[in-house]
Design a protein around this nucleic acid. Structure first.
Lengths: 214, 214
DNA sequence: CTTGCATGTTACTTGCGGTAACTCGAGTGT
DNA sequence: ACACTCGAGTTACCGCAAGTAACATGCAAG
């Protein structure tokens, strides 16, 4: 059992795993997150137990699937975030990148964000909500890091950066989710509105006085 | 079949329904959202089909459960939002109210926000994600209304208010979720940090220059 | 040829959501 | 007093999906 053979096997296993994930991707994107293991196995041209050998349980498969997309999205966000530009431009670019991603592949987005699981059933001890939370959390942490690295916030900067990281990501997420459902305006308008919000326009605006009695 | 009798029946049915919801509440808060219909029925001292007569299916029960809590939370938020105070004070009061609520009853919060459903299985056509999304959406719409009513935003104010409503709610939600999990600071600090973010402190802060090479 | 070992399959168990069909008890008209 | 409806409740079942056990097959090494 020399190293070369082990590597061979490992390579083939990894390759198989990737094929399975791609098949699962197709099915999940077609049937939604309630896709059954049988359906995924059939799409991959095999049967259930193999899926279980590779991923443990349904949660494992979904986690692997989510990781792929999450990593891909985070990569593109990092590019926008790390660009050598003005802060406002970077914020707008990041927002736009995120929104463009969810606009381009809403099915993927729904899968990542609205688990609406499928992995809740059965015995017990299944760790629910494995997908959406990690993505938001990871985005939040990355953003926090960037903020802390590049913005001068004085004392307590680390905690402030983390709060803001998670808060901004949540703002982006919720606004994007709503926008994707209703499409009330163009992507550019949404980006602008959100950036305006972050730029303190809510605080700067005046009170409305013409209202009824208020 | 005069009106009085019909009312009597309706009253008893409503009362029963309330009892069932309270039982369901206990089970869900104890077992998490994967509580089975059997368990809920047992807690209520009856058997499954009655639950189905009252709520249609599991989604119906969960929706009814979610509506109760959602309405209660929205009521307390409205109070903070409509207070006759300075805008910043109102914002901080609202954030604090929300955070206090999720801090006081994290189980309820988890149920509302992280469906981690249970209603994914079976035949088909089950509308997933019936709970969490409505709560965030309703909060967003309410906040949008308040913003539009009380803040002078010039042209395009309605759309801007809606974007901000959903965005701010999302910020509050994500930051609260993260905070509830890690408890990195006090509630008051979190409120202050988020309000600072909305007040444009991110835009106002200077670039960090001491960093390595940036 | 046989012994591992990875890969795959069939066939099963378990447990849950959901439903059909029956039972029971209380009020009502004659 | 008696049959009759009607709502509340129960038992027993179906279908389906997750997950598993036990059996088959192809292929390298000794």
């Amino acid at each position: 059992m020399d190293t070369t053979q082990r590597t061979d096997q490992q390579r083939s296993a990894d390759r198989r795993r990737r094929e399975l994930l791609e098949a699962a991707d197709r099915v999940v994107l077609r049937d939604g997150p309630q896709a059954s293991m049988n359906a995924i196995a059939a799409e991959a041209g095999i049967t259930k137990p193999i899926l279980y050998r590779h991923f443990g349980d349904k949660g494992g498969l979904y986690a692997a699937l989510a990781k792929r997309h999450t990593d891909a999205l985070l990569d593109s966000l990092r590019a926008a975030l790390d660009a050598p530009a003005d802060r406002r431009e970077r914020v707008e670019a990041t927002l736009d990148t995120y929104l463009a991603a969810i606009e381009a592949r809403p099915q993927v987005y729904r899968f990542l964000m609205h688990p609406a699981d499928g992995g809740q059933v059965g015995d017990q001890g299944f760790d629910v909500g494995k997908h959406s939370v990690p993505l938001l959390r990871r985005m939040g942490e990355e953003l926090a890091q960037v903020i802390e690295d590049r913005v001068d916030l004085g004392p307590g900067s680390q905690q402030l950066a983390r709060v803001w990281g998670h808060g901004i990501v949540g703002m982006m997420h919720a606004a994007g989710d709503w926008w994707l459902g209703e499409r009330p305006c163009s992507r550019a308008e949404l980006v602008r509105s959100l950036a305006d919000l972050l730029w303190g326009r809510l605080a700067a605006a005046g009170d409305k006085v013409g209202g009824p009695g208020f």
